[in-house]
């Protein structure tokens, strides 16, 4: 585990702003800052979890990495190339290295293509195999994700949600990607199926030496699969650390609140647990609060700096435990 970690992909100051309103001349007057100045690294063969509330920008990050959205500013460095700067044609050449598993398996498969065609398509487009070998490869992929060969000619609507998500995973695997962005791959599924798909994803990671960027709502799903976890709030990364470190030693107040919201199954521990309940709603990303984005809901005793200056994303432990909070030192002894 503790061997030298190689960086697979690095995100530097990445931002994505959506135009919400334009004036008469087509110039933007209202922007939604879905992702605002986010930096992180993804190491080879790790699973980096990304959590946060709805609308915090985690999906947008994933989709920028996978070429669905283009970045407004910032860099996505892969193999020494800044993907964010490439033209459409050159960018497509990297599609086979970064794949995306979508959130909603009912929406992400073309209803007019058979499952076999859906899985074969990325291989054909990227010309990875001669035509006569594609069928064999598709069968192999179907088996990898736990589907049978004879289901190849069926259409997506003939499958259940869990099976469709398996098809989505097989499609992502088809090009032998280096990185798979899993965009809340289980949130649209039944709880009983969630575990199956999560296990499948961990098995595939072992088998193919994959790297995941795993996006999820809550910390419990991420805990199962990730090595490191990043916590996002209002388009900004708030805390990023090793999974164990983050769960044992959360430093950002938002992370603490998130962790305290996870239900505890052991009643003995439950009594000990202090529940942090945040008040208010997430502010609108169109008009985010000045200073620390979290200060409007923070339960800590704020200082003036919180409302004025945006906290830097600093390494608090020297072991890649990053946090964006002005008060992390003052509260370092805070009881968990």
């Amino acid at each position: 585990m503790e061997k030298e970690k190689e960086i697979l992909l690095e995100v530097k100051n990445l931002s994505k702003h959506f135009v919400v309103e334009k004036n008469f001349f087509g110039q933007p007057i209202k922007m939604l800052k879905a992702v605002d100045d986010v930096s992180f690294k993804i190491y080879k063969q790790e699973a980096l979890g990304l959590v946060g509330e709805s609308g915090c920008g985690k999906t947008t990050i994933g989709k920028m990495l996978a070429n669905v959205h283009s970045a407004t500013s910032g860099q996505i460095i892969y193999n020494g190339v800044d993907l964010a700067k490439l033209g459409e044609r050159q960018r497509r050449a990297y599609c086979k290295d970064i794949q995306l598993v979508f959130q909603d398996p009912y929406e992400s498969l073309n209803p007019r293509m058979s499952v076999g065609d859906i899985i074969a398509e990325p291989i054909r487009i990227n010309k990875l195999l001669p035509n006569n070998e594609i069928e064999k490869r598709v069968n192999y992929l179907l088996n990898c994700v736990g589907l049978a060969n004879h289901q190849r000619n069926r259409y997506p609507h003939e499958f259940s949600g869990g099976q469709r998500q398996r098809v989505g995973i097989a499609r992502a695997l088809a090009v032998q990607p280096k990185l798979i962005v899993c965009d809340e791959p289980v949130s649209a599924l039944d709880v009983s199926i969630q575990a199956q798909v999560l296990n499948l994803l961990s098995d595939l990671k072992e088998e193919f030496g994959l790297t995941y960027l795993f996006i999820a709502h809550g910390l419990n799903v991420v805990k199962h699969i990730s090595d490191r976890v990043g916590v996002m709030y209002l388009g900004k990364m708030q805390e990023l650390a090793d999974k164990k470190e983050l769960y044992d030693n959360p430093t950002h107040p938002y992370t603490k609140a998130l962790l305290s919201s996870t239900p505890v199954t052991n009643p003995k521990l439950k009594a000990k647990k202090e529940r942090i309940i945040l008040t208010g709603d997430v502010p609108s990303p169109i008009n985010p609060p000045k200073g620390c984005p979290f200060h409007t809901r923070c339960y800590r005793d704020k200082v003036e700096k919180c409302t004025v200056e945006r906290p830097a994303f600093v390494d608090v432990s020297g072991a890649e435990h990053f946090v964006a909070c002005h008060l992390y030192k003052a509260y370092s002894q805070e009881v968990k």
């Binding site: 979508f102 498969l109 487009i125 990227n126």
Partner: peptide, 22 residues
């Protein structure tokens, strides 16, 4: 903007193929 059209983009389709195939 449906997800399967996004998916078509993710796997490397160009605009023409997205329009005509997906």
């Amino acid at each position: 903007d449906s997800e399967y059209v996004q998916a078509a983009k993710v796997i490397g389709n160009n605009d023409m193929r997205i329009i005509f195939k997906h």
